[in-house]
């Protein structure tokens, strides 16, 4: 199946624009049939590299570590603003792009503003913690909630 070039095109678009491409965007970019791209989206979903927008499988909710919609995890890299689905993926954007990043987010309980930073290939120390409510075996039962 024509999956790998489409996977690369999705991630290239996210990396360069911070926006999620649609099925039509990728079909146009690669000059291939829309049906082929939709099939690849479905396959990438099975591989857990992509989550379609609920109710519209032609759009991407997330291609981890990137989010296709605004989230409480705003990641700034060289002036470009990305959104991540969660704290893990916020660090993941810095890891995927191999660059420093500043992450603006908020405390999960109080809502107080928080800032994380990745500098020279590692996180700036802070006493913050992540709590994952769902066991690993269940993460993909509802990955948007997780």
């Amino acid at each position: 199946m024509f999956v790998t070039p489409i996977k690369l095109a999705i991630y290239d678009t996210f990396a360069k624009t911070a926006q999620a491409p649609t099925v039509v965007d990728i079909a146009t970019k690669l000059n291939v049939p829309v049906t082929d791209v939709q099939n690849a989206f479905d396959e990438l979903h099975k591989q857990r590299l992509l989550v379609p927008e609920p109710g519209d499988e032609t759009r991407i909710r997330m291609a981890p570590p990137f989010s296709g919609i605004g989230t409480p995890f705003r990641v700034t890299v060289h002036g470009r603003i990305y959104f991540a689905p969660c704290a893990w993926d916020a660090f993941g954007i810095a890891a995927a792009l191999h660059t420093d990043a500043v992450i603006h987010t908020k405390d999960g309980h109080s809502g107080e503003a928080m800032t994380l930073e990745v500098k020279k290939g590692k996180p700036v120390p802070a006493p913050y913690v992540v709590h994952i409510a769902v066991p690993a075996a269940k993460w993909w039962d509802d990955i948007i909630y997780t």
């Binding site: 969660c86 704290a87 893990w88 405390d107 309980h109 928080m114 913050y128 409510a133 769902v134």
Partner: peptide, 9 residues
């Protein structure tokens, strides 16, 4: 998956 300022939070 949520981020917190402290364990108390």
């Amino acid at each position: 998956m949520l981020l917190f300022r402290s364990e108390e939070m």
